[in-house]
Write a protein that binds this DNA or RNA. Sequence first.
DNA 1: TTTT
DNA 2: TTTT
Lengths: 175, 175, 175, 175
Amino acid sequence: MARGINKVILVGNLGQDPEVKYMPSGNAVTNVTLATSDTWKDKQTGQPQERTEWHRVVFFNRLAEIAGEYLRKGSKIYVEGSLRTRKWQDQSGQDRYTTEIVASEMQMLDGRGGDSNMGGQQGGYANQDPMGYGQPAQQASRPAPQQSRPQNQAPAQQQPQPAAGFDDFDDDIPF
Amino acid sequence: MARGINKVILVGNLGQDPEVKYMPSGNAVTNVTLATSDTWKDKQTGQPQERTEWHRVVFFNRLAEIAGEYLRKGSKIYVEGSLRTRKWQDQSGQDRYTTEIVASEMQMLDGRGGDSNMGGQQGGYANQDPMGYGQPAQQASRPAPQQSRPQNQAPAQQQPQPAAGFDDFDDDIPF
Amino acid sequence: MARGINKVILVGNLGQDPEVKYMPSGNAVTNVTLATSDTWKDKQTGQPQERTEWHRVVFFNRLAEIAGEYLRKGSKIYVEGSLRTRKWQDQSGQDRYTTEIVASEMQMLDGRGGDSNMGGQQGGYANQDPMGYGQPAQQASRPAPQQSRPQNQAPAQQQPQPAAGFDDFDDDIPF
Amino acid sequence: MARGINKVILVGNLGQDPEVKYMPSGNAVTNVTLATSDTWKDKQTGQPQERTEWHRVVFFNRLAEIAGEYLRKGSKIYVEGSLRTRKWQDQSGQDRYTTEIVASEMQMLDGRGGDSNMGGQQGGYANQDPMGYGQPAQQASRPAPQQSRPQNQAPAQQQPQPAAGFDDFDDDIPF
DNA sequence: TTTT
DNA sequence: TTTT
């Protein structure tokens, strides 16, 4: 239930591959940064200008898993969510704040994973249907991203990587 | 021109009276904090829970003047805008970041000013047409709200109050 | 699951009291018309112009019951939903189409019921908690609005009023 | 100026090539139909279901020209706009209503024109920069769509095609 | 009529 | 750090 409206709608591109972490409960939490940009012409000089805004987006649970599996650096997505400002302490104990978009809906706007220049070394996520549409696409081999993080398919065995607690998945820099 | 979509929609109530400042150019900049809240029942205990989110909203130019004149602590408004994260330095020279909603549209959702506990001394807000609807607004004398900030009608003479530069209207706390 | 985005956001006022109907399943369906308006100045004459847009909004299930109980002619609400165009046949058997907003979220933006000219006989809306916020709502007896439609609390006994089938709750005029 | 909020956000694919018309003033008006769809599983049978919603979107002026030049059947776009229901008379003189989304913003979400299976026979729109970003893409030859409509670049000479008046660009069927 |  |  909500009192007031707190809604964010973004369409942008991922700055890096998603970072998936798991909470003690086994629920996934995935963080991505999303770029949107404005371009305009300087009134004085007529020079084209550009400002890129970086948004910190966080996905939970099922969306987190989909994001972790299917999004890559460069992926273009639609995200709907709400703003949340978290308070945390930096190394020196000072209060700091980070504003994130907690995603409630996500759609991939490009079929490709995004960054296509990622080598060919890996296992592949073939035959998947991320968003739950239709039947398991025919696509033979989708190259897996270069990643050291655990495979999301097997959250149980990602033990060695200490599961992140809900309140420590923030680092001490905003992004 | 935009690349990507960066859109925020909020409906909430002001935490305090707006803070209006003027840029050297004479353009107004108004900051408000807006509360939205979520309520839910704790799954374990069934206890009602509430979390209030505070949004930092900034208005420029004409919207800034309307906001400064007509909004008050408690006012309920609709705001549409975009996210912008500003970088600034705290006292110790450390980089810090604040995320704001730069408003592109605003609508007042209650006729009254909002804050009902502002004493009984002043005249009310009769005969006003803040958003430009309605009849040509004969309003000879618009009653001023209780405020120590300069009257927006006369930004030129608000000199004594040192005009805020565009990049110093951030304090060293997020809100 | 959605392919694409189909989202509508409205803030406006109800043109009449809501019309609540019940499907054979006992589920409520409530229709309202919502006004939004644009005002501008004619470029030639400088005369203020106004155009009011009427939106047909439909609520289902719990939202339908809340709408039926708490909204009145004049109520200001926020509605979020999606567009749906229904096909139907007019008296002469011709295909016709009506576009509606199927609401997924609704918030009341004024405490009062809206229509203040609803006679003076009834007790007001005290002790209510329409949207489910706040404390368990002691409300012994919720005063009924002036309505000939069945009480939503007891859909089962609203028999005499022939329950509307899902596909006949459209009349032969758009609104 | 607006009273109330009337906002639509769509992400979908064009059902056909855009239809560009010109008003007597020379201003362009472009109509497209946009598909969004919902998929779900039938609760009883577990069968996957799909419902496609078709939206009638209208662009004016500069957006109309961009839409006419760069969008094609199949193009995926983001559209933001407002709802407008137009009244018109069918052949038999009966009042009918059509609801459209009047676009205020549009972004193309795929680089390609959309329908790629359109042969290579014609003149091409190479070296253009539709949305005003960056420098005129390198792309040598973009195949032009199969269309009988006039080239938008030369609205003046599209005479033979009788210019559509503002109020006759509706046909007698909704889409 | 689109798309996956 | 993305994208065109």
